[in-house]
Design a protein around this nucleic acid. Structure first.
Length: 400
DNA sequence: TCTGGGGTCCTAGGACCC
DNA sequence: TCTGGGGTCCTAGGACCC
């Protein structure tokens, strides 16, 4: 664990309320005040990505399957937007936050931590938070809740306490009064597997979790590490360092598709995985990433998920090298299971500028060499699956 | 007509190296 | 003729989050 500096800090956690729905309302004001959700339009497949507060009042919440949502609210309006709209508003809200501090850590598309310790010397944190909240609503059109606390974890917990448009201050000395009465499922990091275990052992509230007399019991099924982790966070002993570079470099890039049909032929699998590999390579090229580890994911119609990965000697961003590995993984590990999801991922990433010295103009493949390999791959597939099979020709292979 | 898609982090066993 | 011990990488799976 990192040693913390002795002086305390003031951290804001700014959390957009129903972000996807809010963006949809900006683009289509007619949605304001309506019972609606974000998800795949005209479909019963998939899940709710975000629900308007009016829909939440009727029991709709994110991650709920659309089928379940329609069962609850038969006339539920479901809309979808291109992801780039959300990204656009993500940047707008970050830009506004940057007027208040350079120390901003992006936590996800709709939330960020801001270290306002310095600014707080001149103005009360509550005044700063209020101004940010009002400006985000007026200038960007997005409602948010803000938590103010001495650590990132407590700020995150605090922003959850009042929604929408809430501001909550959570000082260490108030933790027992404010957090202890809450359910353990409110703890960031306690999910749908751990929560039932806690309930089973009669650990219902955060206060129960923190009781010394429950310590040994909790450790017995949660493990010492997890126990210590949660306790230190609740006690306000976790990190107060807002790291602007956290997550700025990806650890992995992946893509996956759930099909509305059963996939069960190797040729079809490779056809779909090739499209996904193209997508991955496009993203890698755009951000100048090279990879060493390639993973293929299968999910069966019984919802059993398997992943198979392989690491290669040399970093690469070459489609044919990556797809070669994908092909080998499929040929080695796919055994006729009926599949509903396929995915490809790359990890063990490195930025082009950080490649070891031995990677240079003379050792990296030229475009011609890449082209040649793609040609070889094509020939291999035409031989194996036939010209008329699922592979439609050269330009699809080359598409970036 | 069940259960998205894109991530991060952690664990645990085995290989391999010194 | 007793089987070390630390470090790192690889692989598979799982929990969790938005």
């Amino acid at each position: 664990m990192n040693a913390l500096p002795s002086h305390s800090k003031i951290i804001l956690h700014v959390d957009m309320n129903a972000f996807y729905c809010s963006v949809a309302c900006i683009l289509n004001p007619a949605l304001r005040g309506k019972v609606f959700a974000i998800g795949r339009e005209n479909s019963y497949r998939g899940v709710v990505a975000s629900a308007s507060y009016e829909a939440r009042a009727l029991g709709i919440h994110s991650a709920m399957s659309l089928k379940e949502a329609y069962d609850k609210v038969p006339n539920l309006m479901v809309v979808s937007l291109d992801h780039s709209y959300y990204v656009h508003y993500h940047h707008l809200f970050l830009n506004l936050l940057r007027e208040y501090s350079d120390l901003i850590e992006v936590a996800s598309i709709d939330e960020a931590y801001v270290d306002i310790t310095e600014l707080s010397a001149q103005r009360h944190p509550l005044v700063i938070a209020k101004e940010i909240q009002v400006r985000l609503l007026k200038e960007v059109g997005l409602p948010c809740s803000i938590g103010i606390a001495p650590t990132l974890f407590l700020a995150k917990m605090a922003s959850d306490l009042k929604k929408p448009l809430g501001i909550t201050i959570l000082r260490k000395k108030d933790v027992s009064e404010i957090l202890y009465p809450l359910s353990v499922k409110e703890i960031y990091g306690i999910g749908k597997k751990t929560y039932p275990k806690l309930i089973e052992h009669h650990i219902l509230t955060i206060g129960d979790f923190m009781k010394e007399e429950n310590r040994e019991k909790i450790i017995s099924f949660l493990g010492q590490r997890n126990y210590d982790y949660v306790v230190s966070h609740i006690e306000g002993k976790s990190s107060n360092i807002v790291d602007p570079n956290r997550y700025s470099d990806s650890e992995s890039i992946s893509t996956s598709v759930t099909f509305d049909r059963v996939i069960q032929s190797e040729a079809e699998i490779l056809y779909e995985l090739r499209k996904m590999t193209n997508e991955i390579v496009r993203k890698m090229t755009q951000k100048k990433y090279y990879t060493k580890t390639i993973t293929v994911t299968f999910r069966t119609t019984e919802f059993k998920t398997m992943s198979r990965s392989h690491s290669i000697e040399q970093y690469t961003d070459d489609f044919s090298v990556i797809f070669d590995v994908v092909t080998e993984l499929v040929e080695e590990h796919y055994h006729q299971e009926a599949l509903r999801l396929l995915g490809v991922g790359v990890s063990n990433l490195i930025l082009e500028k950080d490649l070891p010295q031995e990677y240079n103009l003379f050792t990296l493949p030229t475009e011609d060499e890449k082209e040649e390999r793609i040609q070889e791959l094509m020939n291999h597939f035409q031989q194996k699956y036939g010209k008329e099979a699922l592979f439609h020709g050269k330009d699809q292979w080359k598409k970036r």
